[in-house]
Design a binder for these strands. Structure first.
Lengths: 185, 185
DNA sequence: TTGATACGGAACACTTTGTTCCCGAATTCA
DNA sequence: TGAATTCGGGAACAAAGTGTTCCGTATCAA
């Protein structure tokens, strides 16, 4: 990819992330973004169709990175939380959310949480559905209800975490999480 | 209150609710609302400062209604889920959400879920915090984490419910809910 | 070096917002 | 019932934001 394109894209992502940490998504204008990123109006619209498109692409880039890292680190094709060490995957994802990307905190500390968490859930749902089929018959709860509950709880935990200034460690959080969700067979 | 005021307010609420069931909050314009409600632009701004204000007031009205009904029905001052029959309160709230107000379904079936659920959580958090103080020491989980988890799970369940067309009964949902959250002392 | 491509400034039409002025109609109160 | 008050609504307005177009300049890849 052309260096100019990449530079512009990064500048816009960075400026957008910075703005997101201060204002809510819907209050941010394209003008603010291009001012902060120091790019022309024409350039912005050459890269992204709309403001919504920008947020969408940014979320996708972030999650592709976080989850591919998490999966590599486990060196396994079993991505579900029902693996031998569930806390390992959870902890690993939480570390990425905390350290590797300032962008994530920017997004999570504003009202655009919903869209962000929507993408988050898409990945979590995928991971969870794999190995959960049989563990539901016992509890008498429909599988999709359980999947929704667990991935929703994870997302909810991350939200709580950031709203409290990342006070807890990823290990502590993983422990809490496994303590409050129903045990998976 | 003046009949004219009440009529206008109802017309706007109704039109807004109808629009919310089809479009997302941010895509709806004030022009659409006043067209659908058949009121003048001046009138709208005489009642509500902004579109956000409209959503805010509508949520407040709904929750005041739902929760006051739920509390009356229980005939008790103990509003927490840790009462003798936790499923009774849960079921009762769910019935109200399903039957009494079309508005709620309108709001929940679009992207404004977040704001709506925000108010929802305020009420749930209040109800939960009352009788949860001691039941945390055992599990080793901080109280605010647990409160966040439980109220978040409730809200998440309602979202799942509506996205699946209210297929389950309130009784079934209450059963599922109590099955997946950690037992409260 | 050259051809292609990305950047950026300025101006544009368009949409939406929130306000103001004013008059007619409904309501309340005496 | 009649007068004073309050509400509704039409029209026009400035201001802000959106997304596009045109065109000259700067940068890149080969």
């Amino acid at each position: 990819m052309d260096r100019r394109q990449q530079k512009t894209r990064d500048a816009i992502f960075s400026a957008f992330s910075e703005l997101l940490s201060q204002n809510s998504f819907n209050k941010i204008t394209v003008q603010q973004i291009i001012d902060a990123a120091n790019v022309g109006r024409t350039t912005f619209y050459a890269h992204f169709e709309t403001k919504d498109d920008l947020l969408r692409e940014m979320c996708i880039e972030i999650f592709d990175h976080v989850f591919s890292s998490a999966l590599q680190a486990k060196n396994t094709h079993d991505f579900s939380l029902s693996a031998e060490k569930p806390s390992a995957l959870i902890t690993h994802i939480l570390y990425h959310l905390r350290d590797n990307r300032k962008n994530i905190l920017g997004i999570l500390s504003c009202e655009s949480v919903e869209l962000f968490l929507g993408y988050f859930r898409q990945y979590l749902d995928k991971s969870l559905a794999l190995k959960l089929a049989d563990s539901c018959a016992l509890s008498g709860v429909p599988q999709d209800f359980l999947i929704n509950h667990i991935s929703g709880s994870f997302v909810n935990m991350v939200r709580w975490w950031t709203e409290n200034g990342l006070a807890k460690t990823p290990e502590e959080l993983a422990e809490y999480f496994l303590a409050v969700i129903p045990p998976i067979a």
